[in-house]
Amino acid sequence: MELITQFFAALYELSNAMAPYILFGLAFAGVLHELVPETLVTKHLGKESIGSVIKSTIFGIPLPVCSCGVIPLATSIKKSGASKGATLSFLISTPITGIDSILATYGMFGWVFTIYRVITSMFIAMAAGILTNIYDKEIIEDVQEEHENSCCANTCSSTSEVEQKFSFSKAMNYAFVTLLGDIAKPLFWGLLIGALITIVIPQNLSDILVEYSWVSYLIAIAIAVPMYVCATASLPIAAALMLSGVSAGAAFVFLSAGPATNTVTIGVVKKMLGTTSLYIYLGTIVFGSVLFGLGLDFIFDINSIDAASLIHMQEEAGLLEILSSIVLWGFMLFFIIKPYFKKLP
């Protein structure tokens, strides 16, 4: 009974810490989606140059698209003439961050960790794109993916060339129906797993992971690469790991590698860009995540910073946090239960 009480207490704290930033980030993401046409993205990424890679990375950083939702958009960009490097950098930078995830990261970990996460994701994405343009120049026939079979078939982005005026209702519909509907399930499980990790990981395991940080890095990579977890949903899991004694660097590895890869995206990269690009894609993400994770731990060590102290979770949440948490959970449960009602006669 005590464990159940501790679980719901941890879940309550995680939800209250993240909910206001997630909701505000979703609203901002909806506005951004309406203001930035996809045609603006596609026409700047055609050359096999460092410039096109940098542009694709910058385009991808704020876009609120998950690692599965980026597949059709990346396919469209590639078919519109984007280079392999630009396409790959876009595939990496877009799901690692997003305006909703950036704000949620700030709300939970503070601005230093947030800036570090954004900047390092840019370096990883640009490195992958540049290496691809250098070492993978062969021409491979583009293959249109069967998006109806992907995990985000109902939320794929449109590539319509028609210019439309800004619509607030469409922006909010995209934010709280399309986008939140897309991340509701992984966010739900992310919160539950995060709360569970907080109370379940035994102290002796935490001591081992603290003393042998390389073990926690290997575990983070092994879990993150094949797993589908969006950038926002990965935050409570990372926070729980840090609260359990895992280093900030290992948690960063999970936050970086998890959203950028999953089994679906791996298959698409191989089919769309080829085996060489796939190796560069996986190698850059794994190596870059571990390298910057080590860098984060080094910074914490020389400044004697406790990783757990970064996490902003107030014991007594305010009215705004509680209401935001109720709204967020209401939306999540609605989108999780909704498919089952469609199956009823």
Rank of each mutant, 00 (worst) to 15 (best):
F7P: 04
A17G: 09
M18T: 13
P20T: 14
G25C: 03
G25L: 01
L26Q: 07
A29I: 11
V31K: 05
L32D: 02
L35V: 15
V36P: 14
L45C: 15
K47I: 00
K55Y: 13
T57C: 13
I71N: 06
S76A: 10
S89P: 12
L91H: 08
I99S: 03
D100K: 03
A104R: 04
Y106E: 09
V112I: 10
T114Q: 04
Y116L: 07
S121C: 13
A125G: 00
G129T: 12
G129Q: 00
I134H: 12
V143R: 15
E145G: 11
E146R: 05
E148D: 14
N149A: 13
C152Q: 12
S158M: 03
E163T: 12
S169V: 10
K170W: 11
N173R: 01
G181M: 02
I183Y: 08
A184R: 02
K185Q: 05
F188D: 06
L191S: 08
A195R: 06
I199E: 00
Q203F: 05
W214P: 06
Y217T: 01
I223S: 04
Y228G: 00
V229Y: 01
C230I: 08
A231R: 01
L235A: 05
S244L: 08
G245Y: 02
A250T: 06
A251P: 07
S256H: 00
A257D: 06
V264D: 07
V264H: 10
T265M: 09
I266C: 12
K271H: 00
T276W: 12
Y281W: 14
V286R: 06
V286I: 15
G288V: 09
G288S: 09
S289V: 05
G293Q: 01
S304R: 02
A308K: 15
Q314N: 07
E315S: 08
L320Q: 11
E321Y: 04
F331C: 10
L333K: 05
I336F: 02
F341Q: 12
